[in-house]
Each structure stands twice: as C-alpha cells, then as structure tokens.
Design a protein around this nucleic acid. Structure first.
Length: 594
RNA sequence: GCGCCCGUAGCUCAGCUUGGAUAGAGCGUCGGACUUCUAAUCCGGAUGUCGCAGGUUCGAGUCCUGCCGGGCGCGCCA
C-alpha cells in the first residue's frame, strides 16, 4: 500500500550508493522489519554490495560499513522518519503519525473494497465443485469447494474478471450402477427432504457397488448373481449411450435429486456458480474433437482393434516417460474422461473467452491434467500455458481413504450439524444473553467457519486426516479466533456510539498500536499474492496474524477510556473492516456477536 | 522402472515461489492475568541434528544433485 513511498526510498538509496561509489545489484528488495512495535522496511542490499566487491574480505563487516555509509548518506524521503543501519541491514522506519492516519483513513473510506486490486483485464475461470452425482457430498468435496470458492473470491478481489464453473460428473459406470439399483430395488420410492433423499441415493449407490464387487470365497450362486447384475448395469449403460428414453428419464430424475443437494450445499457455502458444465454434455463434442486430433496427426487411431490415444512424450520429443500416453476413446469408440476434458477446455477457451483456466481437482489427477494441458498445447491453444491444476491432498479418515463406493465417508452435512451443536453448547456457557434467533445464526456462521478454515489453512499439497476435534476447533488458530477478534472490535464500536470522521495519530503510539496498523497495511499485498499464486493459504495465515495482533492490541491498549479515544476508535474500526474483508475471502462469515 | 507431492518442536502445521536479522504458530505442558472495551482472549517459561549426505553461495529450512522414509499416479476408471 506504500509502493510509491518505497519506490522513492529505493531511488534515494540508489543515489546515495552512487554518490559513495558503491556498486550494488539492480533489484533492491524491501521487507518488513522484524522488530515488534516498530513499523518499517529493510533491505539486505549491503550484503550483496559487499559480496560484489569480491575479495576475501569479511562480507559481514564490510556489509555493516556499507549499510552505515548508506544510512548516513541517504536523503531520506518524507515518508520515513529514520533510516538506519542495523546488523548490516538498511532499515527505514515510517513516519508513524502521518502514515498511521493514512492507513486508517484508507480503510474506513474504502470499507469492503479495502484491498481490492485494480482491474487486470484478464478473465479467469475457476472450476471447482465437481462431485459425482448419485453420490453424497462428503468432507473431501467440502475441501474442494471451499478451496475453489476462496480462490475465486481472491482472484476476483485481486482484479481479475472471474467466472465460477462447476463440472458435476453426472455420467459413468458408477452413476449408472446407482440408477440400475434404484430401478431394480427401489423404484418409486422417494424420501422427503433434499438431503435425506440425496443421502438415500448415495446409500443405494453403495449397496449396488457391493452387489457387483467380487467377494472372497463367493459361492457359484453368488458369483452367477453378481455377474448377472454386472451385465445388467452394463446393458443399462449401453442403453443410456444409445439415448434410450426410459433410461435417460430415470437418470435425469435421480440426477436431479443429487443436484438439489449440491445446490443447497453450494448455497450454504456462498458459492454462486456462474456456469454448470455437465460431463454428459461433453460426450458428443469430445467425439468430434478426437476426430480432429486424429486428422491433425496428434492422435493415433487403432480402432477397431485398439483405442484412440496420444503419445505425448513422443509428440513433444521427450525420450523419457513423463507425460506418457493419454487414451481418448475406448476401442468401441466411447469417450473417456481425457477426451471430455479436452472438449470442456475448448469450450472454456472459445465460448467463455478465458485467459486463465484454473482447475481445483484432487492430486490423483495431476498426470491427467498435465496430459490435457500438453495436448491442448500441441493442438495450438495458447491459453494452455495459463491453465493451472490447483491440486490438493485428500481428506482421509484415521482408518484410511474415504470412498463413496465403500460407503465409509464423513458426510458434510453431518459435520455441519455437529459443528453447530458444539457452537450452541459454547454459546450457552459463554454468552447466554444471545437470543434464540441470534444463536442459530451464530452457530451456523461459527460452525461452518471453523470447518472451512480448517480445510483452507493447511497447504493444498498436504493430506488432511479428518479429526472431529481438530476440524471443529474453536480455539487458537481457527476461524472462531478470528471471528472473535471481529466481535471484540465490534463490541468496542457498539459502545463508542459512532466512529469519529477523522482523528490524528500525532502522539506516541503504543507498540501494539503501530503493529496493528502495520498489519492492516499489508492486507492489499496479501490479496495479490494469494490470488496470483493461487494460494488461499496465504490469506488464512494473514487473517490469523491480523486477529492475533488485534487480540494483543485489545488487551494492551485501552480504547474508550483513553486520551487517544478518537484515533483508537478509528483504528478499531479499520481493524474490524480488515478482519471482515479477510474472512470474506476465506469464505467465512464475520459475526457481530458470538 | 518412471513421474508428481510430502518429510520443520511430543502432536498438527506455517515459513521454501523472491536465499539474509535469534527458525515461527496452534494444540499439549508448566506458571500467571477476568469488580476494568465479551477470557472462544492475553502474558511468560520449557521443548528443534529444519529426513540424511554432498554441492552452489559472503550467507541455505529456502536453490542444485544423490540417497532414505511416506503418499499418489503411470494407454481403453474418473
């Protein structure tokens, strides 16, 4: 937020070093100083300058000399009250009274837009929320959705035009297996309630999977029955493929039950999807595309004695196995996932005109996306280079992998219900004055927030072993901790009877005050970093740090009964706003009371 | 066999993209702080061969190479 000031500082430093004839590298990098209660930036340029002089000289000592020389010589820009050499670093400290007011004024003026980046003139599509239909939404899907939604909010706020896309897997042998079992064993049944019905369908899927999975020591009768069932579901898939009206209708009806549940959950998570692509819709375009790739000589066609595939490594001229071979069509000409993803990518590029395409999909599909991007490149799509697979590790159970097919999943709705129960218990104990209505709202905000934060505050590359107590932690590094900072700020503001229109920070600030101001001022940079690196984790870390700083401020600095009441009320309001903006980007709501 | 990811405090994890100031949090543990803006909080203590070995560098948790351990994946599942 002080780019201009820091640029001036860089220019001044360069001039100073030139005057004393010290060579230095082109790039001068400034980072926040690590000292508590002092607000400034520092650079390690003196080390590099000392090293440039070469020789066997003691770089450490020479660096300190250079830093001192530079600090003495520099014509310090107005923004900084002091430039000094410390441990061979050149540190510049902000003129706090002036810049504290500027930070706070900016936040209070821009409000929910504080931190928003300038328009970048690029369109990003974020694809997430791709659960299979006819299954149930479990905690692993929640990781995907929360990660995707947070990323979408970040890139949008950072200044990209953003399109949210969902790509439900609504067809495949698994889906058909469920439809088959519904028709054979449960036809005409339909439980009440969106989630009850969705979960019931998922149980049918699990039952059906068990029926068609070979058991150990099965008897001949069991085997024959299983093989008969397997043949029936495959026949149903064939009928689906040939657009049999009865099967299609059955499939659409049950699909809708799953989608109803998905829409409801996306609503709870505040994910407003702009475009739904369905896997089933990619089937026909995929076939056309494969023909084109064959004609272009990119894909090889061995039908009917073999499949259609692309030997990617060979096409790229690699002599090692890296991207391997991607099979696009089965021997019988039916499409595979790879072909459908090519069709989807083409539609994104052509119809939606996206410059960057991000796929939030679990890590098992890393090779698949590497292959898709490379084939798109071979095909001539420039955007393929700006396509990114944001992969994430699975959410597993202490006992191992979750699997809808095996029926051992932790359902998202169950976790949400438990989270809300736990929050209500804590409210009963800590804040009994809340009304019934408020309690219900707060339970949802805090319960869901805790869960979302737990899923987002671990690096996406890492596996999460689901643990109820960890996922629903309300203390320490957690959403409730951050929400509570917001509540405390709000509580002060409620009692302050308004926020003064302006206030001067022309007094000796306490350590925690300047620290809080510095932290707030970092928010816009964190937005940019999280968005351009596709890493919501940066924001979750920042939000926690900001909350921690605020809690410390809250304890150490009296606001309402102090000489500096006006300024501190404004600072509190700025902190509250920045906390709210941070939480929003993490897909966590910011309650006013809890 | 090949490819990708992970290995940091008792446990769970930040920090690695852009090498630099005593390696940070949370949980747990020990000790303190509620007549004072909500204690879902704060303050302080203890706890580290940053998987191992080399290399590059004035400087490596961070970059490079090899190895070890774990996970995932590798032509007709998605």
């Amino acid at each position: 937020m002080f780019d201009a000031e820091i640029l001036k500082l860089t220019v001044s430093l360069r001039e100073a070093l030139d005057r004393v004839h010290i060579p230095y590298p082109q790039e001068i990098q400034w980072n926040p100083t690590p000292f508590r209660g002092r607000w400034g930036v520092g650079t390690a340029i003196a080390f590099q300058a000392a090293a440039l002089e070469g020789k066997e000289a003691d770089v450490q000592m020479r660096a300190q000399e250079i830093a001192e020389l530079a600090a003495r010589e520099i014509d310090s820009p107005a923004a900084f009250e002091l430039v000094q050499a410390e441990k061979a670093y050149i540190n510049a400290y902000f003129d706090i009274p002036k810049y504290a007011a500027r930070v706070v004024d900016t936040v209070l003026q821009q409000k929910e837009d504080f931190g928003r980046g300038a328009p970048k003139g690029e369109r990003v599509m974020v694809e997430y929320a791709q659960p299979n239909t006819h299954h149930s939404f479990h905690i692993g899907h929640a990781r995907n959705t929360v990660l995707g939604e947070s990323l979408a909010r970040l890139v949008e706020f950072a200044g990209f035009e953003t399109v949210r896309a969902s790509y439900p897997g609504d067809i495949g042998l698994g889906v058909i297996t469920c439809v088959w079992a519904y028709q054979k064993f449960h036809y005409g049944q339909e439980p009440e309630g969106v989630h009850e019905r969705g979960q019931w369908l998922a149980r049918i899927y699990h039952e059906a999977s068990t029926l068609v999975t070979p058991k150990e020591d099965e008897t001949r009768e069991e085997r024959e029955l299983r093989e008969q069932y397997d043949a029936e579901r495959r026949e149903m898939f064939r009928l689906w493929d040939s657009k049999d009206p009865e099967i299609r209708e059955l499939w659409l009806k049950t699909r809708e039950w799953s989608l109803d549940e998905l829409y409801d959950i996306l609503g709870m998570l505040g994910a407003e999807i702009d475009v739904y692509f369905f896997e089933s819709e990619m089937d026909e375009p995929a076939k056309e595309i494969v023909e084109e790739l064959i004609a272009l000589g990119i894909a090889e066609d061995e039908r009917p004695s073999g499949p259609v595939f692309v030997k990617i490594d060979e096409k790229l001229g690699l002599d090692r196995d890296k991207y391997r071979t991607s099979v696009l069509l089965r021997q019988d000409g039916t499409t595979l996932y790879s072909a459908k993803d090519l069709a989807l990518a083409k539609r994104k590029f052509d119809t939606y005109d996206v410059d960057r395409s991000v796929y939030v999909v679990d890590v098992r599909q890393s090779l698949h996306f590497d292959q898709v991007f490379k084939i798109l490149e071979l095909w001539g799509f420039e955007q393929a280079k700006k396509s990114h697979h944001l992969s994430y590790g699975f959410v597993t159970l202490p006992g191992g992998m979750m699997s809808s097919r095996m029926g051992n999943v932790v359902l998202f709705m169950d976790v949400v219900a438990e989270a809300q129960r736990r929050v209500l218990d804590i409210i009963a104990e800590k804040n009994p004055s809340l009304s019934e209505d408020e309690r219900a709202v707060v339970a949802r905000q805090v319960g869901l927030g805790a869960l979302n934060y737990a899923l987002i505050s671990v690096d996406n590359t890492k596996e999460i072993v689901f643990d109820w107590d960890k996922a629903l932690s309300f203390e320490g590094q957690s959403a409730p901790y951050i929400q509570n900072a917001h509540v405390r700020a709000n509580s002060i503001l409620r009692k302050s009877e308004g926020v003064p229109d302006e206030a001067s920070f022309d007094y000796e600030l306490l350590e925690m005050e300047s620290e809080l101001i510095e932290r707030i001022s970092q928010f816009p940079e964190v937005v940019q970093r999280a968005a351009t690196e596709y890493k919501p984790l940066h924001m979750s870390n920042y939000a926690f740090e900001l909350a921690r700083t605020f809690h410390a401020f809250y304890h150490a600095v009296p606001v309402l009964r102090s000489e500096e009441r006006e300024a501190r009320i404004r600072l509190t309001a700025a902190a509250k706003q920045t906390l709210a903006n941070s939480l929003r980007l993490l897909d966590v709501e910011a309650p006013d009371r809890m």
